[in-house]
Amino acid sequence: MRLLLVEDDRMIGESLRSALRLEGYAVDWVRDVAAAKATLSTERFDAVLLDLGLPPGGPKDSGDEGGLGVLRELRSREDTTPVIVLTARDALGDRVKGLDAGADDYLVKPFELDELCARLRAVMRRHGGRAQPVLSHGGVTLDPSTRQVTRDGVPVLLSAREFAVLEALMQRPGALLSRAQLEDRLYGWGEEIESNAVSVYIHQLRRKLGAGFIGNMRGVGYFVGPAPGDGSA
């Protein structure tokens, strides 16, 4: 899962980015209103973690609303990317403003990483139209909350990045995900991407889950479930 973290406090930003990467998320980080708006207008993310008290980072009038301005601009162009507000503003009025502006959730600092990750999973389930947290296909089950994977009831041990690739594929059975789309799920800005990393993780997953569990269309991408375009689905 690729996240955009919008946080001006360097200590909080570095700490959150490092902790979330250890949880298997790809995290990109910006620190002001102008950078957040520019990034969200050109790149796609699975979710946004948004502070409210942000500096403008550009013309003075561009940041008067701080994080709320970022959120309102995002929603004004009908972008439905899930947004969780992370802020020290705990007044009822601030929470109401944030939710009314289009936030999917509102978390007051300080918070525990486990709670943030749980809220992220809940928001992504709602966004994907799923009531159940566990993903299942072809005898394989994946539980995002416990990060456990089983094959025919037997636990399968995966690395954080193997898990991220498998989760991305199982969230959209039958959909083709390209190498670039999977790399986006694995790496944030500044992280070195090995040219064959996705191929290596796919090979390891096939070895652990069965050679036929993950299909591919040469030169296009990878999928689980029925082959894309197969009317037998």
Results as ranks from 00 to 15, higher is better:
Phe111Met: 14
Gly57Val: 04
Ala197Val: 15
Ala164Val: 03
Ile84Met: 11
Tyr187Gly: 02
Leu169Cys: 06
Ala103Glu: 01
Leu205Thr: 02
Thr42Met: 13
Ala26Pro: 13
Leu142Arg: 03
Gly138Met: 05
Leu16Val: 08
Ile202Met: 08
Arg151Asp: 07
Ser76Glu: 14
Gly93Arg: 13
Gly153Asn: 09
Ala175Ser: 08
Glu112Met: 12
Ile193Gly: 03
Leu4Met: 06
Gly67Glu: 05
Met170Phe: 02
Leu3Val: 10
Arg31Asp: 14
Glu192Cys: 00
Glu191Cys: 04
Gly67Phe: 06
Pro56Gly: 11
Ala160His: 06
Pro228Val: 09
Gly231Met: 07
Gly215Ser: 09
Val224Asp: 00
His203Phe: 14
Ala103Lys: 03
Arg206Thr: 09
Ala88Gln: 13
Ser195Met: 15
Arg218Ile: 09
Ala164Trp: 00
Glu73Gly: 15
Glu43Arg: 07
Pro144His: 03
Asp28Ile: 03
Arg121His: 13
Glu112Phe: 07
Gly138Arg: 08
Gly63Phe: 04
Asp94Cys: 09
Asp61His: 10
Gly221Thr: 06
Phe163Pro: 01
Glu14Val: 12
Tyr25Met: 04
Ser62Cys: 13
Arg207Tyr: 05
Leu4Cys: 06
Ser232Thr: 11
Gly188Ser: 02
Arg121Asp: 15
Ser136Pro: 04
Gly129Trp: 10
Ser199Ala: 15
Ser15His: 09
Arg207Asp: 14
Ser145Cys: 11
Asp105Tyr: 10
Val108Asn: 00
Pro173Phe: 05
Ile214Gly: 00
Thr141Phe: 02
Val30Arg: 01
Leu86Ala: 10
Thr150Phe: 08
Ala36Leu: 08
Glu162Pro: 01
Leu71Arg: 01
Glu78Val: 12
Leu135Glu: 01
Ala19Phe: 13
Arg172Asn: 03
Arg2Ile: 00
Pro59Phe: 05
Ser232Leu: 11
His127Met: 10
Ala47Tyr: 07
Gly128His: 15
Ala35Lys: 03
Asp184Pro: 02
Thr150Ile: 05
Asn216Met: 14
Ala197Tyr: 07
Ile193Pro: 04
Thr81Phe: 14
Ala36Met: 05
Glu78Trp: 02
Ser41Phe: 12
Gln181Val: 05
Phe111Ser: 14
Gly231Asp: 09
Val70Tyr: 02
Thr80Cys: 01
Arg75Thr: 07
